[in-house]
Computed example of a mutant assay.
Amino acid sequence: MSLRQHIATLVDGQPYRHALFYKLPGGLRFRMAEGGEHFACVLTAVRKATVVCEDVFAGTDTILVHLQSYATPNRFDLRLTLRQLEMAGVTLPRARDIWAEPAPRDFPGDDDNWWANALFELPKSSLASLLWCAFATNMWELRPNPHCQVYLINPATGLTVHPYDDRGMDVVGTSHEALRQIYSAHYAWLFEYDLDTMDRHFAIPPPA
């Protein structure tokens, strides 16, 4: 089974990308940034997300990484993405799955634009670099910045982490118990807007 086929089994074959908390009910949504200028927001997000991800990836030495980048027909933007990834300390290994898929029809721009996907394993020591790339994605003035979506997957527990920008991070998966443990350990950082939904799903009173 290829890595690409394997990740589909982790979410019961459902499309897991973008707005994971709303597409896959039963997940978690964390508040990351706490105000301030752009650089400080990203650093705060990286710090908090690292704490959560240390629990998500406890007991494993590697992270399954899925990167998705928007690309135009000239492909030059992908070279820029790879260069920025390398500057951030993220180098794609030889063992990887790479594929392309059309951009959604409602995506602005030329109909020939597409999404480039790369799936590969990295050591857990790469976590901070990956989180920086994820949280800086909408901060055009920050570098390094590959401007790509970053999904971090723990195949052993079936949990997928999507740090979507400096504001927040989703954690979803098919293991209710694994999610419940993350919910309990990091309750203070859950997004207030969606807290009632998470409380109802996990049926545990808020900590005192």
Rank of each mutant, 00 (worst) to 15 (best):
Q181Y: 13
H147Q: 12
T160C: 13
T197E: 12
L127N: 01
G89P: 03
Y16C: 04
A58D: 08
P108Q: 08
R4E: 14
R17D: 14
I7P: 01
L190F: 10
Y164L: 02
G109K: 09
L85K: 01
H201Y: 15
V11P: 02
P205Q: 11
S69C: 07
C148D: 09
H201P: 09
N138F: 15
H201T: 01
L195F: 12
P102V: 08
Y193F: 15
C53L: 06
G36A: 08
R96K: 13
L130K: 00
V11N: 06
A88L: 05
D166V: 12
M169H: 06
S129C: 09
H38C: 09
Q14G: 04
D199P: 02
W99Y: 14
C53H: 04
S184H: 14
G109M: 08
H66K: 01
N74K: 11
R94G: 06
V172T: 07
Y193S: 11
P144M: 08
W132Q: 01
S125P: 05
L127M: 13
H66C: 08
L195K: 10
T137V: 15
R75P: 02
E101T: 15
D112F: 13
F57H: 02
V56N: 00
L78R: 09
D166E: 11
P93Q: 07
A49W: 12
R47S: 07
M169Q: 01
E86V: 03
V46N: 00
Y151T: 05
W114A: 10
M169N: 04
D166N: 06
A136I: 08
K48A: 03
P93D: 03
E141K: 10
F107I: 05
A88H: 08
P207D: 09
G35E: 10
G168T: 04
Q149G: 11
G168C: 05
H162G: 05
R31W: 14
M139T: 15
H201L: 07
W115H: 12
F107V: 09
E34C: 09
P123A: 04
F107A: 12
M32Q: 03
P104I: 04
A128M: 04
I63D: 00
V150L: 02
Y193D: 11
A45P: 01
A95T: 08
H186Y: 15
Y183T: 00
Q84V: 01
H186G: 08
A45R: 00
K48F: 12
P15T: 13
T44E: 10
V161C: 05
E37W: 07
R75T: 11
L152A: 05
Y70G: 10
F21G: 02
A33L: 10
P108E: 05
I182N: 05
L130A: 04
I153F: 13
R17W: 15
Q68R: 09
I98Y: 14
P73W: 03
G89I: 02
T160K: 00
I7A: 04
D12N: 10
T91L: 14
I182L: 15
Q5R: 13
D196G: 12
T60H: 12
V90R: 00
L179E: 06
Q14E: 13
E37H: 09
Q149M: 07
L78K: 05
S125R: 03
D111P: 12
L80E: 13
F57G: 00
Y187G: 08
V51D: 11
P206E: 07
H18A: 14
I7M: 09
I63E: 00
R29M: 13
T9V: 13
T9P: 05
N145M: 06
I182V: 10
